[in-house]
């Protein structure tokens, strides 16, 4: 991918987050994070548990203010939840409104942001089609299985037509089989709608399978420890892609980085690979 300044969607610049700054028990969760996300890119953030993944994601989503540094979305500095950013949370059952039907859940953000009714209906339908849930439009979320609920959350995020879609360990709470299906679904939606996705996970295999680029975070206080380009074929399938020799190599590479991260908080080393700008 050729990177020019103009197609940068999301830019994270030296973001630092200190909890309880100035007090005696201040905790530096994120030391300094810098990376850019280009239009159409699918990147995964991987890191050992407690590496400040959630903190970082909240800073990007505008739910938390970074102590210093800035997050820029489409050229505008993020200060609070920004238009053009959608988030899929891990806790699908707690992130859908249980008093609204599936289609009403998907429609709500469009409704409150003033999208005209006809367009709204069309976008809701498209989004539900994209996650193959049109048949469940009138159901309530709690009438659906976990995997289906997370698909509703994805449809809601997609319907708002975001510049960047953030996903916070979205498949950590579903069973392995559903997980595989959802991974394929996300890649399909990503390609079909030409989206830009930042996907946070602790699962190394998942990150390699999904992304074109894997950012490995050090343990807390966090920095970007490695930025690995995933040169797997564009069309992927659970059975074939995962048995490729190259998949194994990449997986190994990411694994090594994560192992290194576990023992090196605030990692001293910064490796830039495959010519990607840092």
């Amino acid at each position: 991918m050729t990177a020019s300044k103009s197609d940068i969607r999301l830019s994270v610049q030296q973001v630092r987050k200190v909890y309880g700054a100035g007090s005696r028990n201040e905790v530096e969760a994120v030391r300094s994070l810098t990376f850019d996300l280009h239009a159409g890119e699918f990147a995964c953030l991987v890191g050992p548990s407690g590496s400040g993944k959630t903190t970082l994601l909240k800073c990007i989503a505008g739910l938390l203010d970074p102590t210093s540094g800035e997050v820029v979305l489409d050229g505008r500095r993020v200060s609070g939840p920004a238009e053009g950013m959608a988030v899929v949370f891990q806790e699908y059952s707690r992130s859908l409104f249980p008093w609204l039907s599936v289609e009403d859940n998907v429609e709500l953000p469009l409704k409150t942001s003033g999208v005209p009714k006809a367009e709204r209906k069309a976008r809701v339908k498209d989004a539900l089609d994209a996650v193959t849930l049109s048949h469940a439009a009138k159901s309530y979320p709690w009438q659906l299985s976990g995997g289906m609920q997370q698909r509703v959350a994805i449809a809601r995020a997609v319907a708002s037509n975001p510049s960047v879609l953030l996903m916070d360990e979205p498949f950590a709470a579903v069973d392995a089989q559903t997980r595989g299906e959802l991974e394929d679904l996300v890649r399909e939606v990503w390609k079909r709608l030409d989206m830009t996705i930042l996907f946070v996970t602790h699962d190394i295999d998942e990150s390699v399978y999904l992304a074109e680029r894997v950012l490995v975070l050090s343990s807390s206080p966090t920095i970007v420890q490695a930025d690995i380009h995933i040169d797997l074929p564009d069309v992927r399938s659970q059975a074939d892609t995962r048995s490729l020799h190259r998949f194994g190599e990449l997986r190994h590479q990411v694994y090594e980085e994560v192992q290194f991260a576990k023992t090196n908080p605030g990692g001293e080393r910064m490796s830039v690979r495959d010519g990607l700008p840092s």
């Binding site: 939840p81 988030v87 949370f89 953000p109 409150t112």
Partner: peptide, 17 residues
Amino acid sequence: DEVLKNTALVYRLRGFD
């Protein structure tokens, strides 16, 4: 619920909405 509140924030549900 905390997650639900964050969801509402992310989708910019404000004021009366």
